[in-house]
């Protein structure tokens, strides 16, 4: 399974997100430390879930890090996270 699909599967199971978008950005880091031929090292995660209600930024990131801890130890070199609650996502849309 591609790393990106594994990330999606795990996040969906853990957070039942209203919105989830995982992008492989490895091509933007070609030749940098941590990149591998074939990519799949640098990812962008945008996720909206009610599981983040009432949690600080650090707490949200920690939940995601815990969910992907195995991948973060090996396959994933960099993970950029934007984690919103449904209320925050709705507010951003109305701006």
């Amino acid at each position: 399974m591609a790393v990106v699909d594994m990330i999606i599967k795990k996040l969906e199971a853990r957070f039942a997100p209203e919105y989830l978008n995982v992008t492989d950005e490895s091509h933007r880091h070609k030749g940098h430390a941590g990149s591998r031929p074939g990519g799949e090292t640098h990812f962008w995660v945008k996720i909206t879930s009610s599981h983040f209600d009432g949690l600080s930024r650090i707490e949200r990131h920690r939940l995601i890090n815990d969910c992907l801890c195995v991948e973060l130890k090996g396959l994933i070199h960099a993970l950029t996270v934007k984690a919103k609650t449904p209320a925050e996502a709705a507010e951003a849309e109305n701006k």
């Binding site: 990131h61 890090n65 993970l79 950029t80």
Partner: peptide, 17 residues
């Protein structure tokens, strides 16, 4: 799990994001 990490007055504030 990732670098960078910022500490302010002994407290972990967060990473890049």
């Amino acid at each position: 799990p990732t670098i960078p990490q910022l500490y302010v007055k002994g407290e972990f504030l967060g990473g890049c994001d």
